[in-house]
Design a protein around this nucleic acid. Structure first.
Lengths: 175, 175
DNA sequence: AATGGCCTGTGACCAAAATCACAAACGGCA
DNA sequence: TGCCGTTTGTGATTTTGGTCACAGGCCATT
């Protein structure tokens, strides 16, 4: 990707600062953007009868979006919010795709982002199909230790698909 | 998409007939194509210590591929095979992307396919994070009844992440 | 109609995790 | 330092789903 392409991409981004707990994409809203985390982290979760189920955590240097909502132009059933005080770059998809002369690089950029976000989702989903809760915890410990350092146990629990108490017991056995 | 674009796409496709159980993409092979199902269905699974775990079923008019393998150019750990006698169109990605003047439409086509395949994977993965086995069955019943009609219970079980016996009992309760 | 192979149903039992209830630890802040 | 709210640990009990073993059904082939 050339410098001109890069700087034209940056021109579609606007910075935004969020306090811990502040919501970036709300349930019921149509998602129209990619978010690039600059500092802090974003938490993506689903509201199941009042209980929060965490689907992903996005740290510095990584992207997140709700592609399903973007693509279908339908309201999001996920919430994306700041897990700490967080600053993000918001890439507006409408202005990127609707501009008069979209460079092929922009299409390729979007394609790569989409694949990147979705492959991450797929990787996490395989955890559930292949491994038991204890095995899932061990894998996170090995491959994504950052999660264990920065995410409260109570939030990690739903991410791993277990009760808070079960995760506490798994962790205890580890020493 | 114009007619020329469409017919140029078709020119990258070759037809192939498969007997039930015949393998289209094998474990260890690098995936280089999209497959479009014309008749029958394809079953995508991976081998966990000798046990088959089904990840997706692809019916008439839908596409499947192993994008992770395509993108990384690394051997597939999934197997794609015919669940019935099946005929497919094979879209060769190398020849599509490496041709001298790739039209932007081809990039967009690939982008849409990729997103479509991955959104389906994501949807299925969310089933596991959010719902219990019984809820998963009910959702399949509601949103993808075709699966229940055409897929043997023993194969559906691993797709839903439960033991064969458990699925049999869930199904019984439903009446 | 009989055979054999495969697929599905079902009971008994077991193990793992959920749930409930409460105690302990921690962290900011007056 | 002491207080309060949040987060984590832990025991007792219940639920759920897995595992094992086997019976019955279905279907194709002879």
């Amino acid at each position: 990707m050339t410098n001109e392409d890069l700087s034209s991409l940056v021109s579609y981004a606007t910075g935004r600062e969020l306090k811990k707990g502040e919501v970036l994409l709300n349930e019921g809203e149509v998602c129209r953007a990619f978010y690039l985390v600059d500092k802090g982290y974003l938490r993506t979760w689903y509201n199941k009868n009042g209980a929060e189920i965490n689907l992903s955590f996005t740290f510095e240097g990584d992207f997140i979006s709700n592609l399903k909502s973007v693509k279908s132009k339908r309201p999001s059933n996920l919430i994306i919010e700041a897990g700490e005080d967080t600053s993000v770059w918001v890439f507006d998809l409408d202005s990127m795709t609707k501009q008069p002369n979209p460079s092929p690089e922009i299409n390729i950029f979007i394609r790569r982002l989409a694949i990147r976000i979705l492959l991450a989702a797929e990787e996490h989903s395989n955890l559930f199909k292949i491994y038991t809760p204890t095995e899932r915890y061990r894998l996170i410990e090995k491959n994504h230790p950052l999660l264990l350092q920065r995410i409260p146990l109570s939030q990690l629990a739903s991410y791993l698909g277990v009760a808070r108490e079960t995760l506490s017991r798994i962790r205890k056995k580890n020493h």
